[in-house]
Design a binder for these strands. Structure first.
Lengths: 271, 271
DNA sequence: CGGGGATTTGACACATATCAAGAGCGGTGG
DNA sequence: CCACCGCTCTTGATATGTGTCAAATCCCCG
C-alpha cells in the first residue's frame, strides 16, 4: 500500500483560523541595541550553510548569499522574535537556540504550529499580508540571522539558484505542514507523541547531535499544544513509553531506548 | 509496492508523514490527448485573474502572465490531477471545478489536506523534492490551466511582480495551513464544522456566488477527513445545526440560515 | 427499475480531557 | 544554609466527546 502526504491550496485560511494581530504598534518600538549584532555574517563560512537557506548553492551563488545577512539578533529565552501583527520586514535564520511558533485566536486559544532549530527559517508567514500572522518565541537564549526581505528580493533577482532555493524553502514548509495535518487529523495520541520524538531525533541527528539523547526545550504544555493534546496526556504517554522500555524520561531529558519500537507505534495501522 | 521517495526536509515532515512515491513511471505516460486543450489561454482576459496567480499584476506584468499558460487540462470527477510520487513539472490553476488534495500513509490512512476551487493554485507541494508529495483529485468535472514550472521560472526571472506573486501564493498556503492546524489541534467538532462551512461560504462569495446556499462537492467522509472527524460525526453535527435552525441540509445541498449563529459556535471560548 | 454507495441515526465503547492532589525542582531571601 | 514559593510535571479518579458498530433509509447512476 501506498503512502504519502500532503498538499496545497491557495485558498484562504479559515476565518476560525484567522489570526489576530496582537499589537502592531508595540512591535515597532526599537529593539534594544545590544541585541543586534552588526557583525557581517558570512553564509559561506557558516557551519549551518548546508542546513540553512543557502543549502545547495555553490561557488558564486553561495557567495551571493553573503549579501543577504548583515545583522544578527539575539533573543533571550521567553522573548519573542516577532508577534502576529508586526510588520513583515525580514526572514530569520536560526543560528543557535530553539524557537516555537504559535497562533493565538480571539478566544485566547493557543496553537503551537512548529518548533524551529538551528538552520531553519522563520518569518515567511508574513510575506502574504506584509504582517506576521504567527508569533515566534525563543525557548532558550537564541540568535538569528536577519535576512531583510527587500534584500532577498534584490539578490534573488539576479541569482536563479537563490530564487529556486527560496521556493524550495517555502514548499518544504508546506509539505511539513501537511505532515502535521496528518498527525493532528488522523493519529492517536501515542502515535503523535512517537512521531514527535522521532522527528526531533532526526533533526538533531542532521545537526550532528546524538539521535537518542536530547533535551526538550519545550514544556509539556507546548508539546501538547503542538500535538493537539493536553499536557497531562503528553506526560502520561511519556510514562507509558517509559514503562514499555521505549524511553527514559527525566523531566526534559529524553533518551530514546528503542527507536524501532517508537516507529512501530507511529505506524500502527488503525484498521 | 511503492518506492520510498526520500523527501529532503530540514525541518522535515514527520516520518509518519514520510511520503511514499506512488508510481513515478506511471505518471510519465502521456495523458490522453483529448484531455489537453492546446488553446492558448489569456490570463489577462480570464475572469478569474483577480483570484488567481496573476492577481494584483498590472499592465505589462499582467501581459507577462499570458506567457505562463499554454495548455489546459480537463480532469473528470474522480480522476486525479496528480499523485504523490509523480514527477513535479507544473503548477495548476483551477479554472473550473473542484478538487481535494490528500495524503495517504503507508498504513493506508488518508488525510484530506484541502479543497481547491476556481482560481486556486495546486502543485507547489512538488517544488521541494521535484516530486509531488500529495494527491490531487477532482470532485467534479474540472479544468485546470497548466503552468509549467520551468516557464514560471523563466518569466518570473524578468518580472519582479510575478516573483512576488509566487511568494505570496506560497506564503498564503502556509498561513492557511496554520489555520487548519489550529482547527485540528484545538477546536471541538462543532467548531470545526462551523469553521469549515463559513470558510466555504466566504470562498464562494469571493467567486460571486451566494454566501448562504451552496452545493457540497465532497462526501461526508471527505469533510470528516479534512476536519479530523469521522463521517458519522459530521453527519450528526449537520443534523444538530439543522435542529438549532442554523442550517438547512439536504444531502449535499447546504443553506446557511444563521451565519452569526455559526460564527458564535466557531468562536466559542473554551474557558 | 434495480442496486450499491451515501447518509442518517441509535446504542455503546473508549480515548482523551478534566479536575484534583501531590511531588520534584530551582530560585530567592531570610 | 535552609525554608519557602512558584512552576512544572506526574498520577489518580472521573467525565465526556467522539469513535465504533450496526441498521435503516435515501437516492443517484447505470
Amino acid at each position: 500500500m501506498p503512502a504519502v502526504i500532503s498538499v496545497t491550496n491557495p485558498s484562504g485560511p479559515y476565518d476560525a483560523a484567522v489570526m489576530l494581530g496582537r499589537n502592531p504598534e508595540a512591535a515597532v518600538k526599537p529593539r534594544s541595541q545590544e541585541s543586534v549584532v552588526a557583525l557581517r555574517s558570512q553564509c559561506s563560512a557558516c557551519n549551518l550553510r548546508d542546513l540553512c537557506l543557502p543549502c545547495g548553492l555553490e561557488g558564486q551563488d553561495m557567495a551571493s548569499a553573503n549579501e543577504l545577512v548583515y545583522t544578527r539578533r539575539r533573543v533571550k529565552a521567553g522573548e519573542t522574535l516577532y508577534q502576529a501583527g508586526d510588520p513583515f520586514k525580514s526572514l530569520y535564520a536560526v543560528r543557535s537556540g530553539f524557537f516555537k511558533s504559535y497562533v493565538i485566536t480571539e478566544g485566547g486559544r493557543v496553537q503551537v504550529t512548529g518548533f524551529q532549530m538551528s538552520g531553519e527559517i522563520m518569518g515567511v508567514d508574513g510575506i502574504d499580508s506584509d504582517h506576521h500572522t504567527i508569533n515566534a518565541a525563543a525557548l532558550e537564549d537564541s540568535e538569528v540571522c536577519v535576512i531583510p526581505y527587500v534584500r532577498l528580493e534584490e539578490v534573488s533577482a539576479r541569482v536563479p539558484a537563490l530564487r529556486r532555493q527560496v521556493h524550495r524553502l517555502m514548499a518544504r514548509e508546506i509539505v511539513r505542514d501537511h505532515g502535521v495535518m496528518l498527525l493532528l487529523g488522523s493519529m492517536r495520541a501515542e502515535e503523535r507523541v512517537a512521531a514527535f520524538l522521532l522527528n526531533l531525533s532526526k533533526r538533531f541527528v542532521a545537526r550532528g547531535y546524538a539521535a537518542s539523547e536530547f533535551h526538550l526545550r519545550m514544556k509539556r504544555e507546548e508539546i501538547g499544544s503542538y500535538l493537539g493534546l493536553k499536557l497531562e496526556t503528553v506526560s502520561r504517554i511519556f510514562s507509558r513509553f517509559q514503562e514499555l522500555g521505549l524511553l527514559a524520561v527525566q523531566k526534559k531529558s529524553i533518551a530514546i531506548l528503542d527507536i524501532d519500537g517508537l516507529q512501530d507505534i507511529m505506524h500502527q495501522t488503525e484498521d
